[in-house]
């Protein structure tokens, strides 16, 4: 994990977040957060988070984006959208969590014990390769690099799924898989490089 050490780096990241969020549909609603806490009270994984979504917005306003990204909050978000549909100010909080995840990945600011970013990577690798996610391939890569103990834990279930034809060993490649690669290359060419 890289570290944000200087004030200038923190300020840069703060500004990138603001710019990205303001360009998202309804992104400017973040300004209307009144800190009511409906989001944190609704979050099914809030009890596992270093700070809930309400506190994330408060910390961001206090210029603490580095502290937010050091914590586990964003990697505990399952995208269930409870906060988003309950927010009285119509802030799309799930979208804010996605933006923070993207910044953490782009700037290599991932806490060492967070495993979700690796799964994200293997999922995307599989889709970029085949055009579709090959669940078995993604799972094997994740287990091999992040958690060997999942092997025995999933063993019996995996065998049952395999026997039922619900865990194929080979991937289906779509005809247009090059199109997926081209889309990724194009988007990458448009992105602002990390300074």
């Amino acid at each position: 994990m890289a570290e944000l050490t200087t004030t200038a780096q923190k300020k840069h990241l703060h500004e990138v977040f603001c710019k990205d969020v303001m360009s998202m549909p309804e992104g400017s609603k973040i300004k209307q957060c009144q800190q009511c806490g409906a989001c944190s009270g609704s979050c099914p994984t809030g009890y596992l988070m270093d700070r809930g979504p309400r506190e994330v917005i408060a910390a961001f306003r206090a210029g603490m984006i580095d502290e937010i990204l050091k914590g586990n909050t964003i990697w505990m978000c399952t995208s269930c959208y409870s906060c988003t549909v309950r927010c009285p100010a119509d802030i799309r909080i799930t979208d804010l969590m996605y933006e923070l995840k993207r910044l953490a990945i782009k700037y290599d600011l991932i806490p060492r014990d967070a495993k979700a970013p690796a799964l994200t990577k293997y999922f995307i690798d599989s889709v970029q390769k085949h055009g579709r996610n090959h669940e078995t391939e993604m799972l094997s890569k994740f287990m091999a690099t992040k958690d060997w103990s999942l092997g025995p834990k999933f063993g019996v279930m995996g065998m049952k799924l395999f026997a039922a034809g619900r865990m194929p060993l080979t991937a289906t490649d779509i005809k247009g898989k090059d199109e997926i690669r081209k889309l990724a290359e194009y988007v990458e060419s448009k992105e602002v490089a990390v300074p």
């Binding site: 998202m24 995840k101 990945i105 988007v187």
Partner: peptide
């Protein structure tokens, strides 16, 4: 015909425009 992965939560967690683009394909 020849549909691709919707992108799921993974693409949104990594690349915003790409997630919309592959979904829109």
């Amino acid at each position: 015909d020849d549909w691709n992965c919707c992108g799921a939560t993974s693409y949104f967690s990594a690349r915003e425009l790409l997630s919309f683009a592959i979904s829109a394909r």
